[in-house]
Write a protein that binds this DNA or RNA. Structure first.
Length: 813
DNA sequence: TGGAGGTAATTTTTT
DNA sequence: ATTACCTCCA
């Protein structure tokens, strides 16, 4: 009955005259084109600072406002929870009505949601749990141990990487090509791992994606249900999608026949190939070109107007990125003035560099009145933060470093979660092993070996196998399972807050940390866990438990199987508070097929895996922001410092060899530059401490790719490395006398010169030939006299430290 | 069982 | 320089 009004609704609300909507005010022509695009699919090439998020959210609001789609017909995919949250927040600020029924989330979050709804169809238990990377690794280690696989030959980390890689390529074990004994073992491991996960009722991140893809691929009815439901699909950061994610989108977009897409839906992919910096973890920029071809995009929309930076900064970005060959092509422009030129400073070493930065920051704060949190220091690798932090500390400047452990990754939190998981799912052996002896209860390695043997022998989970362990050891194990059993029983249908509190107390976790001398923080974190659970419950609408009836995504009773449902009719949206809260949820509550609701605990545990929490809550607002360039993507600051502009650091050694790697480094630099609104500073050091060794570095080639007219060198400019044979000594001694590093408080650095010219014919980055290892590239030279060594990367043979007085090396070229 | 001491590795990272 | 991880011993 309710389904017939749908067509009427869509015809009634005609795409109106685009000019009269308040939503479109203040948008430029390109943005407007992207927002109001209709008729098929398009790719939006959104340059840095071009208002991408605004376009995405405005488009959704526009589609809804003009009645082209009901909330249930929207699917918006992002990569990070942060981005998804931002989209949701902005959208609800834009729309007078609640955003109920829309699917906005990360790829993995949405896959999770889909798998929950079709748990039976994909062969997963309803309360399946999600492994994060830590869990996955320990599961793999356990598996390898059980099968006595040499962890020297097969490093667990690499096995993990291999398995994740396979899944990202959409390959099950049977699809992975086998060449030799080694690859066969790896595939067998993959297979065993899958069996183990299935047995334990857990899935890893890759599995969420892959299984969700297979669900769509193998179940036409379900696939078509979603195809009909999601009339408008929007994808953020499209340049970061991997192969599997692309195929997942293809399944949702419509039916494919001979490479031809048949669909009524519209896909808008938004991305920037120049900001593709995640190839190393499987991102395929090529998906952009594929999208244009497969989805018949006639004319990608380019957002080239930048609203962020002054033009000197933008000129640098444009000039730099123009050196890349693999580009779709795009040039940012701005209406803002030229601004200050980009300042570049070369220091004697990393400590002097850090001091220079903190001096400049002091000026920015005092003279220019920049707020602390509007100043960022970006670097290529985390190791660089040490010297910077030390300098800021000395200068008494408050700072905040991004990228430490996140809340749900902290050991004490993982321990507490492991208890909770075992309440929900006793077969979860990873969690079992994590806490069986934590806090210590006298269950040692010996006992656990016995237990694991028994489990293997009886084909049982650890908690079942406890029954087979004899003697005192067995009793201790049974005490442990007894403890869990009691917790489980006493907390049946209790509010989550109670359950967690009970677990923390009864398990002895709290007591354990209370007794520890440095346990205060951990106790606080555990208490915070209770709060986190509480706000999750409210957010997801578990608190206002209005219904346990099977309902669909829009809150209506579910009377038909999903397959038979079409797009649901528009429904007046009541903007009451209770619904608003539910609207924000990720739909943890129901199984579409059975109508069963997921327990709040199981939902919370999934949430904990899927969203590891903020990188850091501390430090307040008044702090300088320190982070890697990768972490800075998507952010912007009034003033940005890019530290360590040296060959080998930025671009990084490991990328110097191949063109693709170098281009990714260049894109990384492009991202760094485009973070800055008003001021940009770039610094480099002639020497720096790296891995406990002092290393000499040359200025980065990227410096030569910036336009002179937009730069202001604060220290004498070195002759470009590419011009060959630069005179190190003259400019360096000069530099020494003028650079502001002089007051650096530091032990005099024993300058072991490792200049290219003086290394017995060997230089960093030089190609050499070794009789045994073949061709390699010199990465670093260290030591002196007979002890002189070179670290050389031999590619397939790995990186070796060779004694130059012994090694038979021939320079190549 | 747990602490001490030795060894090897150290780009970037979200879900 | 730092740190994670592992072996060995009390």
């Amino acid at each position: 009955m309710p389904f017939s009004s749908e067509t009427a609704a869509r015809h009634a609300a005609l795409p109106p005259d685009s000019s009269d909507s308040a939503l479109l005010h203040g948008l430029n022509a390109e943005q407007r084109a992207a927002v109001t695009f209709s008729g098929g699919h398009t790719l939006v090439l959104a340059g840095a600072g071009s208002g991408k998020t605004r376009v995405l959210t405005t488009r959704i609001a526009w589609l809804l406002q003009t009645g082209q789609v009901s909330p249930g017909g929207i699917l918006a995919v992002t990569f990070t929870n942060k981005a998804a949250r931002e989209m949701t927040t902005r959208l609800s600020a834009m729309l007078p009505v609640a955003v109920r029924g829309m699917w906005i989330g990360t790829f993995h979050g949405l896959c999770n949601r889909m798998l929950r709804a079709h748990a039976t169809a994909v062969g997963l238990p309803k309360q399946f749990q999600v492994l994060d990377m830590q869990d996955q690794l320990s599961a793999i280690k356990r598996l390898m141990k059980q099968h006595s696989i040499d962890t020297e030959l097969f490093e667990p980390k690499k096995v993990q990487y291999f398995i994740s890689g396979c899944k990202e390529e959409g390959m099950r074990p049977e699809n992975v090509p086998v060449h030799d004994a080694e690859s066969r073992t790896r595939v067998e491991l993959y297979q065993l791992y899958e069996q183990q996960c299935q047995r334990e009722g857990v899935v890893d991140f890759g599995e969420l994606m892959l299984r969700s893809y297979e669900l769509l691929r193998d179940h036409p009815a379900i696939r078509q249900h979603y195809q009909q439901r999601f009339r408008h699909i929007l994808v953020d950061e499209f340049q970061d999608t991997n192969r599997l994610q692309y195929r997942w989108l293809q399944q949702l977009a419509g039916e494919w026949d001979n490479g031809q897409l048949h669909t009524h839906s519209s896909v808008v992919a938004v991305g920037d190939d120049d900001q593709s910096i995640y190839a190393f973890r499987g991102a395929r920029v090529g998906n952009m070109a594929d999208f244009v071809r497969d989805f018949r995009v006639s004319q990608p929309i380019k957002l080239e107007q930048n609203y962020r930076s002054y033009s000197h900064i933008l000129d640098c970005a444009n000039a730099l990125i123009a050196h890349n060959r693999q580009r779709l092509g795009k040039n940012l422009r701005t209406d803002q003035g030229a601004g200050e030129p980009v300042r570049i400073s070369e220091a004697y070493n990393d400590l002097a560099e850090a001091d220079w930065i903190s001096d400049e920051i002091r000026q920015l704060l005092r003279q220019d009145g920049f707020p602390h949190q509007e100043i960022a220091i970006l670097y290529r690798s985390n190791a660089q933060s040490r010297a910077l932090e030390a300098a800021l500390l000395r200068a008494k400047l408050p700072y905040r470093v991004y990228g430490g452990l996140r809340f749900f990754e902290r050991a004490e939190i993982k321990h507490a979660l492991a208890y909770l998981r075992l309440l929900e799912n006793p077969w979860d052996d990873t969690s079992f092993l994590r806490i069986v002896n934590f806090p210590p209860r006298g269950i040692g390695a010996r006992t656990l070996e016995q237990l694991q043997d028994a489990a293997a022998q009886h084909q049982q989970s650890l908690h079942e196998a406890v029954a087979h362990v004899p003697g005192k050891a067995g009793e201790k194990l049974r005490d442990f399972t007894q403890l869990l059993q009691e917790l489980r029983q006493h907390n049946q249908d209790q509010p989550l807050r109670h359950t967690i509190t009970a677990v923390l107390e009864t398990s002895g976790l709290l007591d354990h940390y209370r007794a520890e001398k440095d346990g205060v923080d951990r106790v606080e974190n555990l208490e915070e866990l209770v709060n986190a659970a509480e706000s999750f419950i409210i957010q997801e609408g578990f608190a206002a438990d209005t219904t346990t009836l099977p309902i669909d995504e829009q809150g209506r009773p579910l009377t038909q199987s999903p397959a038979s449902q079409g797009l649901l009719p528009d429904q007046p949206l009541e903007p009451d508070a209770g619904n608003m809260l539910q609207d924000m949820g990720m739909g943890y509550r129901l199984d579409l097929e059975t109508g069963e609701t997921l327990s709040p605990l199981a939902a919370f545990l999934t949430h904990a895996s899927l969203e590891a929490g903020d990188n850091q809550t501390q430090a307040g607002q008044q702090a300088i922001q320190l982070m890697t360039v990768h972490a800075s993507k998507g952010l912007e600051f009034d003033a940005v410092f890019i530290a360590g502009m040296e060959e080998g650091l930025f671009p990084h050694y490991n990328a110097l060899n191949d063109q693709a790697g170098l281009e990714e480094e260049r894109r990384l630099m492009y991202v760094a530059i485009t973070r800055a609104r008003k001021r940009l500073y770039i610094s480099l050091a002639q020497q720096r401490m790296l891995n406990g060794q002092i290393q000499g570095n040359q200025p980065s080639r990227f410096l030569d790719e910036l336009p002179e007219g937009s730069l202001k060198w604060l220290t004498p400019r070195q002759r470009p490395a590419s011009a060959g044979g630069y005179s190190a000594s003259s400019s360096r001694s000069h530099d020494k006398a003028h650079a502001p590093w002089r007051e650096a408080v530091q032990a005099p650095v024993p300058v072991r010169k490792s200049q290219p010219e003086e290394s017995g014919g060997l230089r960093v980055r030089q190609k050499v030939f070794h009789t045994k290892f073949g061709e390699g590239v010199v990465q670093a030279i260290e030591g002196a006299g007979n002890d002189r060594k070179a670290r050389i990367d031999f590619g397939r043979h790995g990186s070796k430290l060779l004694l130059l007085s012994v090694a038979k090396l021939t320079p190549v070229d």
